[in-house]
Amino acid sequence: MTLTARPFQVHEHLNANTPAEYRGIQRDQVRLMALDSKTGESFHHHFYELDTYLHEGDLLVLNNSRTLPAVLRGRRGRQLIEIRLSRKLSESKWEALIIEGELSVGEKIHLPGDLTATITGLGNEAPLVTLTFSKSGLELIDAIYRYGEPLHYEYIETPWPLEMYQTVYASVPGSVEMPSAGRAFSWMLLNQLKKKGINIAFLQLHTGLGYYGNDRWPNPSKHAEVFCVPEETAELVNNTKKNNRRVIAVGTTVVRALETAVNKAGKVEAMEGITSLYVQKGYPLKAVDGLITGFHEPEASHLDMLSAIMDENLLMKAYREALDEGYLWHEFGDMNLILPMGAKR
């Protein structure tokens, strides 16, 4: 959760519960609210018009983590148990959330495909636990894909297929929630941006659970996630900054990964591991100049990060405008671009 919930409310009709493709439009036809991070000035477009605000030499950094079907259903005796995976710890261990029923360390959950999960410890923070599975490596991943379901929250009523929770460029399995800021990109739009001279780079940050249910949110300073910034991406970021062009993160996950990889000299270096970086108001961003993201709930710690990019009063003014204009929230909703605009070229 964020340290202080922001003073706005998202009305139910603004919760996007249907993917764009099922609303009769393409992914890149969702709406786009562009904000000048310096002045707070707002502009209203569609996402396929993104290149209006990007200049030759700018760099988009995308998270190509692929979403797993992270919900597993099993039994302990006659009791039905729902497991929500959160973070891979080893080839056979995951941090996870147990839904409906309290289980103790040592208890075993029976899952389809002759798979079992034993609670072997507590997680990084409550209410997460550590699960050790009876299969490991590719066998475990295969079982997850065979029997798992994509995670969805209460505002989504339809069990959409897993491909609705993937970005078009997702390639490295590991996230339990879609890195949703990139969902609106189509290959056509990416090619259009490349033709304009806008550079594209990739990294991975495998997203963990963003909500624990019953008004419980992860502690942003303890929320550990696995990430990898490749050498090529680090070089592109550093060269972009050197050339006085802008680095635009596609998603808060990308901000977290890039800023974690900044060394003492202020440069991004190739790095992989686990990050618990908490970016909030006053945090001195060194790698990232702008951000493409969705619209976030008042309790979400993502808003703390946005307050590091843009004055919070201007941000809240923009959010009130987005509510008035009927922008849609959540992973199937509309998009928000925040960056220092300056003079258009």
Rank of each mutant, 00 (worst) to 15 (best):
Y165I: 03
N313I: 03
A261Y: 04
F133Q: 07
V288N: 06
R146K: 15
E12G: 09
A96G: 03
A126W: 08
E163N: 14
N191Y: 09
V172D: 13
T39I: 03
L291W: 07
G290Q: 14
L50F: 05
G24A: 00
M341F: 09
E102I: 06
R84Y: 07
Q26C: 10
L68S: 12
R76P: 01
A184W: 00
L138Q: 12
A170M: 14
L236M: 14
A249M: 11
L111Y: 07
A184Q: 08
R23W: 01
S86T: 09
V250E: 02
R146F: 08
T275W: 03
R256D: 04
I25A: 07
D311S: 08
L32E: 05
N263K: 02
R320T: 03
M188G: 08
L314W: 02
L203F: 08
V229L: 12
E125S: 15
R66S: 15
K264L: 02
S186N: 15
I248Y: 02
V250T: 06
N243S: 10
H152M: 12
E232W: 03
A143W: 02
N214R: 10
K264D: 04
L151A: 14
F202K: 03
K242M: 04
L236G: 04
R31T: 05
A70P: 12
S42R: 15
T275I: 10
L72Y: 01
K196R: 15
K317Q: 14
R256I: 10
G326S: 07
D311L: 08
W187Y: 11
T275N: 07
L337V: 04
R246C: 00
E21A: 09
E154L: 05
L209K: 13
L339A: 13
L122F: 10
A181E: 11
Q204G: 03
K88Q: 12
K344P: 05
F295A: 08
A261M: 02
Y22C: 01
R87C: 10
W187D: 09
T2L: 06
I98K: 09
V254W: 09
A126S: 13
Y53K: 11
F47Y: 14
F227H: 08
A343P: 00
G210M: 10
T39F: 01
H45I: 00
K222W: 02
L80H: 08
T120C: 15
E321A: 14
G273F: 06
Y169G: 11
S42D: 05
T252C: 05
E91P: 00
V237H: 14
K317L: 12
R216Q: 08
D289Q: 11
